[in-house]
Each structure stands twice: as C-alpha cells, then as structure tokens.
C-alpha cells in the first residue's frame, strides 16, 4: 500500500500481536510476561499509527478517502478500543477477537490495495471532512466490538453460561458509539448544507446511514423497556451490524446507489 513495503509493516504488526497474545495467555498472573504481552500489542498498534502518519505526509492529504485507507483507520480503532475495553473490564477474550478482526482488515488492504493518488476533489475540501469520517470510523469500530460480544453472547447462551453483564457492557459501548454515530450524521448534514444548500438529500449512503442509526436506536429503546430479555437484543445487535456493513460498503454495489456522492473512489 505504501512506497516502502506495506507488507513488511503488516507482517511486523501480526508478529507483534501474536507474540503479545501468546504472552498474555501463558502469563497466568506473571506480571512481567503480561506486561511484555501488552507492550507487544501496543507496539503493533503504534506501527499502524506510524503507517497512517506516513501515508498522510506522503499523500499530502488525510488518508481517509479510499476504502483501503478507511480500513487502515478501522483496524487502528478496533485494536485500540479492544485494548481500552480490556483495561476497563479485564475481559481477556476481547483482545484476540478485536485484534484478529483488525488483522483481517490489514490483510484485506494487503491483498486488495486501493490505488492512491494525492488529489482531493473540491467538494471534499472542507473542514468537516476529517471530523465527519473519523467519528464514523470510531463508531463503526465500537459497534464492530458489540457485534463480536453479541456472537460471544449467542455462544454462551447455547452453553447455558450467559451472563447479563455482557449485555450491560454492550449497552455502554452502544451508547458511546451511538453518540459518535449521531455526531457523524450531524457533521455530514452541516457539511452538506455548506456544500450544496441542503442538509439531507436522501442520497443512498445517507438513507442507509439513517437506517443504521434507527436500528441502534431500536436496540437502545428495546433494552430500556425489556431489561431481562436476552435473545432479541442480541438479535437486534447482530442485525444492526449487518445493516451497518451494507451501509459501509454494500451500497457500492447497489442498484439504488448508482449516483451516490458517497461511493468510495477506486
């Protein structure tokens, strides 16, 4: 993906993360091993940061325009948020899940790199561009984590070991993610008003972003009313993430989205 070897960086990140996870899992209370593991994971994340900064300087514009570039950010936030959740709630399983998910996106970038050029068309040259995309990527990364938790939830449900703490954790993450989702939506509306005089034109991406927003809204309201229900909230959470994925890259292939201003450039 880069002028110098992006593949080398990805392999380094993978080795750091695999080493880190190994150390964490064999540490069994040994503080030194645990710290080496965590430092190794952070090392991998720093390499992503380095790569983003490098691209930013090299391309002479924020690297948030192509699908490949957004995947890079996604893997960064996914791994970082996974780490934060580990520190906050001490769930060790979140690390292999979020890191393998983040790794998958890096791998995709390696196999299918997007073509880069440094031009930024005039409509994208706006102070709203960076906040709009960044808050969305944070929201997507957080919601990706809730999807992973919901898979874990379904698994535990079948084994009869489900613990309601899991859904409470989802609630907290969904609340934070939902606030980012709302901000992304509003920044986009303010930007659109400034660019062509209307907040909302029901562009296909906007339509799907709105559907995504509504489905997480449904989750929040359903959870408030049915505090002990388990299956339906897990179902809504997974369904919402499928809608999110449709919104994120599914619309690039949809008939209804041929003229969208949001379709990623290749």
């Amino acid at each position: 993906m880069n002028i110098f070897s992006f593949s080398l960086i990805v392999y380094c990140i993978f080795s750091f993360w695999v080493l880190g996870l190994l150390m964490l899992f064999i540490s069994k209370g040994n503080a030194t091993l645990k710290n080496i593991g965590l430092i190794s994971i952070i090392g991998g994340i720093s390499l992503i940061v380095f790569n983003i900064i490098y691209l930013w300087i090299y391309l002479n514009r924020p690297p948030i325009r192509t699908l490949g570039e957004t995947r890079l950010w996604y893997s960064f936030f996914l791994s970082t948020i996974g780490l934060i959740i580990y520190f906050r709630w001490k769930y060790i399983w979140i690390l292999p899940l979020s890191l393998s998910f983040a790794g998958l996106f890096l791998l995709l970038d390696l196999v299918k790199p997007a073509i880069f050029d440094q031009t930024l068309m005039p409509a994208l040259q706006s102070p709203w561009f960076i906040p709009h995309v960044i808050v969305y990527i944070i929201a997507y990364a957080l919601l990706g984590i809730t999807m992973l938790i919901s898979i874990k939830g379904v698994f535990l449900l079948y084994k009869g070991k489900f613990n309601n703490d899991l859904l409470m954790m989802c609630d907290n993450i969904v609340y934070i993610a939902f606030s980012f989702l709302t901000m992304g939506l509003l920044f986009g509306a303010l930007w659109a008003k400034n660019a062509w005089g209307s907040y909302w034109t029901w562009d296909p991406k906007e339509t799907w972003a709105f559907i995504t927003w509504m489905s997480y809204l449904l989750y929040i309201h359903y959870r408030n009313y049915h505090k002990t229900a388990v299956k339906i909230p897990l179902f809504i959470l997974s369904l919402s993430f499928i809608i999110l994925l449709l919104c994120w890259f599914g619309i690039n292939y949809m008939a209804a989205a041929q003229n969208s201003v949001h379709v990623y450039s290749n």
Binding site: M168, I176, T182, M183, A189
Partner: peptide, 21 residues
C-alpha cells in the same frame, strides 16, 4: 434546524460522557 442540530449535538456528547451505567 441549526438550533435542533446543536441540541442534538449537546445531547449526544452527554450520552457519550455518561454512558448507560
């Protein structure tokens, strides 16, 4: 409309700050 957007922005920041639990 801007007034409503600002209200929503304040609301979403509060949502982020407080979480659910």
């Amino acid at each position: 409309v801007y007034f409503g957007i600002v209200m929503l922005l304040i609301g979403s920041i509060m949502l982020f700050w407080h979480g659910k639990y």
